[in-house]
């Protein structure tokens, strides 16, 4: 099993395509960091416009590494699924397209095992991608912008979290984002099992995510109460929950999370989807006639 996994990882990381995602992420993060370094205080000013009538909020203190990371994650995590799909959506259909699938499947490895190994490899790729995001968005930002308390602007509330109380939240948030992206990987992987060309599953995944994200962000009560709770994209935003704190008389309670059950529920829903997608992929692929 480990040997097979090594082979799959080897195949992933010997492809130039794999590194597109890493390069794209580096480029986006770099651009955001440059923009915030030179024009960040205006950006913060805009974000704190609701506060400025009542408070003097020092933009230079708000603009710190933790905050920059938070902005980057907000801008980036919506788009990382596309990069995940680029690899996960190619795992099976890419082999079919290349003509190597028939060789793989005629090897003494069960199809279930082959798929589990391939999915694990896609999962590892996803995790590495997120570690890369974390390295650049969090640790590099901490180096460039320093650290301070984290200012979280919410729709009707501002949360300020003390510097010592942040790092674990990021670790938790990245772990949650991993679950979300693994779900995307599973979706993409499932579509990949259905198809015999690479483009189809990748495009299909991206389309699903775009449509679901639009539905998630649309504030239409009809959808809010009917389909929205079932869209996995809604739950993928759950990582933000780790930055919503509880307060007592306006004072942030250290190590608190406003609504942990909701985050856990979102996480479980995502996992359920991931498992569903993976099992569907295996169920289908086991019966599939390899004609490619």
């Amino acid at each position: 099993m480990w040997q097979l996994l090594k082979i799959e990882l080897y195949k992933i990381f010997r492809r130039p395509r794999t590194f597109i995602a890493f390069a794209v992420i580096a480029a986006i993060i770099f651009l955001i960091q440059v923009a915030l370094k030179f024009g960040g205080e205006e950006y913060v000013g805009m974000m704190m416009s609701g506060l400025n009538s009542t408070f003097d909020a020092p933009a230079d203190q708000v603009m710190n590494g933790y905050f920059v990371c938070f902005i980057i994650l907000n801008l980036l995590l919506i788009h990382v699924p596309i990069l995940v799909a680029l690899v996960a959506g190619d795992m099976i259909s890419g082999e079919a397209n290349m003509g190597t699938l028939r060789l793989l499947v005629s090897k003494p490895v069960s199809r279930t095992q082959l798929l589990l190994v391939k999915f694990t490899a896609a999962g590892i790729y996803t995790i590495l991608l997120l570690l890369w995001v974390a390295l650049l968005s969090l640790f590099l930002s901490m180096l460039i912008f320093g650290t301070n308390e984290l200012f979280v602007a919410r729709g009707e509330e501002v949360n300020i979290i003390s510097a010592a109380d942040i790092l674990w939240r990021y670790i938790a948030a990245f772990a949650f984002a991993t679950v979300g992206l693994i779900t995307v990987a599973a979706l993409s992987f499932m579509l990949s099992a259905f198809a015999d060309n690479s483009i189809g599953p990748i495009v299909a995944t991206v389309c699903v995510i775009i449509v679901f994200t639009i539905l998630t962000q649309m504030q239409i009560p009809f959808y809010d109460n009917t389909i929205k709770p079932y869209l996995f994209t809604t739950h993928m935003l759950g990582w933000k929950g780790f930055f919503y704190v509880q307060g007592e008389e306006g004072v942030t309670i250290e190590r608190s999370i406003e609504n942990l059950p909701a985050i856990i529920r979102s996480g479980l829903i995502l996992l359920a989807y991931a498992v569903l997608f993976l099992f569907t992929a295996i169920w289908y692929f086991k019966r599939k006639n390899i004609l490619s």
Binding site: R15, M98, G99, T100, L103, S106
Partner: peptide, 14 residues
């Protein structure tokens, strides 16, 4: 069992 099925498609980037 060893097989070559139709075209000898392999990993071109390897």
């Amino acid at each position: 069992t060893g097989a070559m099925i139709e075209k000898p498609d392999l990993y071109k980037y390897l």
